[in-house]
Design a protein around this nucleic acid. Sequence first.
DNA 1: ATGCCTAGCTCCGCTAGA
Length: 269
Amino acid sequence: MLLEEEAMDWKVSTWNVNSLKARQEQVLKYLELRKPAVLALQETKLRDEAFPQLPFQTLGYHILHAGGPGRNGVAILSQEPAEEWLRGFPGQEDPQAPERLLAAKIHGIWILAVYIPNGSPVGSDYFLYKLEFIYRLREFLEARFSPEVPLLLCGDFNVAPEPIDVFDPELLAGHICFHERERSALKVLADWGLYDALRAKHPETPGLFSWWDYQFGAFKANRGMRLDHIWVTKPLLNHLRDCYIDREPRGWKRPSDHAPVVAVFELPD
DNA sequence: ATGCCTAGCTCCGCTAGA
């Protein structure tokens, strides 16, 4: 009993909202309903000065945002303030990385929130940029962090890791977000010492997707892909209670095309 | 078939998303 009282539930959620301007009311509703300790957002599509801080602060969240004009934009909202934070790949010239990668130390745990480039079409310069981005992320982890300490990498990876993670692996073979080269890049990233939280808890369950096309009634038919992930180091995996995809917001009116992915940890208070 | 994908941006169509 004493042990239970000393442990706390720590919920981390990641959600590609496809414009925070268009989705502000839904994100506020989500925070009120689910009350995650941390919510990572991708595709805010906002400049830093345009982030609507007040309604989120009113709900008790601290805000870190790494945005820019038009596309991209990542944020970390947290009930506890960040002790340290950084954006982009430090020391690198890439103009997009500071809108796609944000890291924050919260409750003593480094949380890396990422929006990996889409990379379409396959074989283009942009496709190579996507692969390179994933390899640079691995180098960044090597240079700056250790797999021996609790760390969480989450966000829109824009890659479905395995055939079980897409609705039709034969149809989608070689397509963007399920191409062999993307999947092998993701394996190199994982080999640093990261575990897929969802598959740690639900290794064989098919049909677990986090993105569905707006077209073709894809959500209703569950024709989707698992592109959004929460990966953790071994020390944090030991505290993982569950990981799941929260499909409800995908069914709301005027939704994002992605659904939140959630991990719940039992941590010492 | 009542029904079309949805953002931003600078227009009133285009590009990107995945």
